[in-house]
């Protein structure tokens, strides 16, 4: 399926009942050079809206929230050594973690690409 987006500038791409989560192109551009990423432990149960990861640019640390509830089934350990992947390929190699969704209806509250693009435009 296609990507969904949150107003916290995260994306989620769901295949089957597993969603892959990262930050958007807009977010990485605005953050600037990412120098540290902390991803959640595999097996952790997360609730929608819970702070589960951290992305740090040279200037600032930001929380990343779980866009959906479920269990973390994989985390991108490579980001520890190559945090710049988040800048280079925010929706590719720069993914953060994967969650096995406990409630797929939570996806309904997220934005599609057109809605997210309009949201970013509205930020000026």
């Amino acid at each position: 399926m296609s990507m969904k987006y949150t107003n916290e500038h995260e994306w989620i791409r769901v295949e089957g009942d597993v969603g892959t989560i990262g930050i958007t192109q807009y977010a990485q551009e605005q953050l600037g050079d990412v120098v540290f990423v902390e991803v959640p432990a595999v097996g952790r149960t997360v609730a929608k809206g819970e702070s589960v990861a951290v992305v740090e640019s040279v200037k600032a640390a930001s929380d990343i929230y779980a866009p959906v509830s479920g269990e973390v089934v994989e985390a991108n350990a490579a980001l520890a050594d190559t945090p710049g992947d988040v800048n280079a390929e925010p929706t590719g190699k720069g993914w953060f973690f994967k969650v096995k969704l406990s409630d797929k209806s939570e996806l309904d509250g997220l934005m599609d690409e057109a809605a997210y693009d309009a949201f970013v435009k509205s930020l000026g």
Partner: peptide, 14 residues
């Protein structure tokens, strides 16, 4: 849940 004093991504970008 980890106590956090980070900004949210939205706050950081604002």
């Amino acid at each position: 849940m980890i106590a956090s004093d980070n900004a949210t991504l939205t706050e950081t970008l604002l």
